[in-house]
Design a protein around this nucleic acid. Structure first.
Lengths: 204, 204
DNA sequence: CGACATTGGGTAGTGCCACTCTCTAGTGTT
DNA sequence: AACACTAGAGAGTGGCACTACCCAATGTCG
């Protein structure tokens, strides 16, 4: 298939496909001449994945490239792929102070062990610091309940990883890590809406 | 206090404070002359809140303005404020198709009742559709467990709303809705990291 | 064979966003 | 009187994700 069909199949403008090719988000097609290349079904899939990462996943082109690099690299371990996905996710760059102590204390209470420079740990510390600065520091009890719910989810995310091939597992981990985030946030909002409707039935 | 001290106290460049004033994210100070205005402690707080919403909260200036409008409006009900916050959050604009049927079925299974045009519902449907397009559609079982965990969190978010004044409750709801999202995402990633370390100890 | 559309590849332009700079006229301070 | 600072507003900046255009080469159809 040629680029115009590839673009049509994936629902992306041709110019944008070319852009993704240039940026290395999509592998080049098989050249059949100086001005022809052949693309396959896997390119359609890849293009859809790219669009999902950039749109709903909320990744920038640069971060998507890093995520896809982990998916592509054949010698990644599953744990390393998860780390790569976490590193590629937007997580409040190391700007400003962060409430690392509180974040570490929370982990200790739950018995979680993570890398000392885990990007997720830094993101948590930054988010806690932002809440503090905004004058809305959450209580430990609230954080613990959040952590308990998050623990259940993370546990199941990892349990659901397929055991077939490493490559398949890596793709699963990376895609689900990124694309289930909007699902989780949407579900939280829906739960809030339902609970709010019940607690504040009319005009409170 | 003058603008330079306000900027220093909040850790924001003077030019940026002026920009926020122009954009209506921060209320104007009390004019004491043609080229002087006085700012108070509440301006420092507001500025910190704005920075938290724009940075860790991940809101655009336009969305932050909408969120803050709900906080400022004195006649908002708590439920309406939550709706305003949800509407202001980035939730995958109504572009492309969405898996509304699956989203509605999920809500039905949990017994949640939400507005038919709830932005969170649309966000969920769009996220599910993105997963499907990326060839990584989650199982119903996984979604249900996500929803159960999210339900616990949403329940507690609403339960934690203070009952003092409506204005206080509105601010609490809006700030927590936005700023606890990065906390939840970070906790999920940390739980994944811990679980992954346990399941894939070495190089799997 | 020749007219015509299409392609790969590259460069440059677009629109948006969140600032950031600069300017003007005015004000408080020394 | 000299100077630093201010409010307010317009213009400029840099980054990003495209998007439009151009070229020579190629395939296709009559």
């Amino acid at each position: 298939m040629q680029i115009s069909e590839l673009a049509r199949r994936a629902g992306v403008p041709v110019a944008t496909v070319k852009y993704y090719l240039r940026e290395g988000l999509v592998p080049p097609g098989e050249l059949t001449g100086a001005t022809r290349a052949r693309y396959g079904e896997e390119h359609v899939q890849r293009l859809r994945l790219v669009r999902a990462l950039l749109g709903p996943g909320g990744l920038s082109v640069a971060r998507a490239r890093a995520v896809l690099a982990a998916v592509d690299s054949p010698d990644t371990s599953v744990h390393a792929a998860l780390g790569a996905a976490h590193r590629a996710l937007p997580g409040v760059g190391s700007e400003g102070p962060a409430d690392l102590d509180r974040a570490r204390a929370l982990l200790r209470r739950r018995g979680w062990r993570v890398a000392g420079d885990s990007p997720a740990l830094i993101a948590l510390a930054a988010a806690l610091e932002a809440l503090r600065a905004a004058g809305a520091a959450p209580t430990d009890a609230l954080l613990d309940r959040y952590a308990e719910a998050a623990g259940r989810i993370g546990e199941q995310d990892v349990a659901a990883v397929p055991t077939g091939s490493v490559a398949e597992a890596v793709r699963f981990v990376v895609v689900n890590t990124v694309l289930l985030e909007p699902v989780l946030l949407a579900l939280r909002r829906l739960a809030q809406e339902d609970a709010s409707r019940r607690r504040f039935p009319d005009n409170c």
